[in-house]
Amino acid sequence: MVIAFKNETFRDDFTFSNSPAAIRRFPFPFHEDKYMYSVNIEPHVPGPKGSVYEFPIDIDEHYVSEMRDRELVLKADPGRCQALPHMMTAQWDMLELLMTSMARDYPEHFSLTQDGDRWHWINRPLGIDQKFTFGDVKTLPYEPMEYIGRQCQGDFSIQDQRDGQLWMDAGIITTQADWSLDFDIGMNFFEWHGPVPLAHQAGVFDRALKFLLNLQHGRPVRRLNWTMTINPRLDTSPENYHKWGVDRTTVTPENVGDKVHLRVELQGLWRLPRSNTILFSIRCYMIKMRELVTVPKWGRRLPRVLRTLPPELVDYKGLTRYRDTTLEWLSKYDDGAPTTLGCGPD
């Protein structure tokens, strides 16, 4: 399958949009008409053909433009990609996982030839042809995590496992929903989730940690997380919050359809074998309200969910200033009809 890569932007003039096919495969995260917090972890096994779950690493029409945006972010702020010194084995683990997945599942676009530790990687969409020695950092232009991270959609962090805890000791994070790798690097599982409201009290993180500590190689898991973003801006970092925060005040009843985006993270968790670390992939999908309501079920369901969101979460997700305007606009698409179970379009 050859993907037609779009040429678009996630800043300044914001030309990002989804094709009709991309709308149909959008990972809409709500399986019922009200908001329910759940850890919703499930095995990351292949899903239906054409869905975002078809392959372990999903590459889509936004690939080339997203990689260009990542390059701009890293140029302005190299601190978005950091690894503590003891994470080098884990970096190679990650490179292997991504290269083998991408080359196996998208042979038209990527290829990998392995001859012992002599590897040859070709990335056609980005015009890269690289021969290197696996395990020898000097043979790549960047450290392995940054090298492959600049060529794969989604943010990545790597958690070291020690003393019954997970420690966020490496990451390449340029499309984050308002958290700072530079601040959080070196924190344990409870610490970096510190700011998340409600879930600690419910014991959610205790159970999740125990589950992840026993995560097995070859048995990755996934979950969906979501927030909303004004303008299709990938880089909603706290570092630049003083520059993009003002966007949240620009929503009017006239521009909701184009400006307000549902932002869904497909989060994958993988045990990396040599380093006994856990790779956390955070693949971001955005959809405009105008695009979302082209699926009638989603147009009915999203306003119902937003109406039942607890106030702590409205605040935490940064929706306070524009939720009501968005709800009003969305309500036009909710005729009150019942919806079917499950997340996908009818």
């Binding site: 601040f183 706290p238 919050y241 993009w244 925060g245 003002v246 200033r321």
Partner: peptide, 10 residues
Amino acid sequence: QGVCINAEDP
């Protein structure tokens, strides 16, 4: 951590 308090409305 210190985060700009009036980013949304300077």
